[in-house]
Amino acid sequence: MPYSYYFSKLIDPNPMKKILVFAFLLVGISAFAQDRKPNKNVGGQFSLGVRSTISLFSDAGSSMGTGAGGQFRIRLYNFMNTEWFGDYLMSSIGTIGTRTDYHIGWSVMFYSPKQKPFKKYHPKPYFLTGHCFDYTRIAGNNPFYQDPNHSVASRWSSAVQAGLGFHIPFCERVDLSLSAQYMFHLGKDITAVTRTAVNGDEFLYIDKEEASINGHLLISFSLNIRCADLWHDHQKKGGARKAAPDPDGQNPKHIEQ
């Protein structure tokens, strides 16, 4: 059989269909290679963050406390975000005792409904409110006065909080946030009183009382990195992206941080 026979089999006299299939494959590959278009609807943004907290307690004689913690955010709509956090806070009671607080809670953050184009370093204010569970432990640190009933006490409490804050976006993925909120705790009250022993030593006398409401101001600095988009803009059949509404109708590259 001459080689020309095999070539004639190999080269289709009507190759248009194959070329079209090949062309579609190329288009598919190039579509995957394209950078993702800006998501104009910011709902679904998932951010991870770390936070440092300053707590100004107003009960049990404790001074300003400092804390460290972490959080994540899930943004629901352009005007609404949620923040889920955990904090570890410590404060001193004079030089004779320590208050330790563990917070685990969540807040809903409300932004202005008016959408604005994304701008670096422009603060974005918000109002936040939420709920939190708190484990508090107050303990005296004088080794000579360790009474299991009156040198240490702990409690669980439930709290509601509300406050104000703002984000400063440094780029489209990272923002620094500052918020101040007041927490109202409902739980058994712990009182800590400084007492002086006959030899002049000071120690902490701690007692647990009936349930009451007490509160403190919590100031948080957090650094957040947007790392995922849990649900993208609505898509048409075939993967084409539906144009997201632009409220101003002016800015085609509208991205709300």
Partner: peptide, 11 residues
């Protein structure tokens, strides 16, 4: 900046 706050002993 930080403060050492042990269970026993001085702050």
């Amino acid at each position: 900046m930080g403060t050492y706050r042990p269970a026993i002993g001085p702050i």
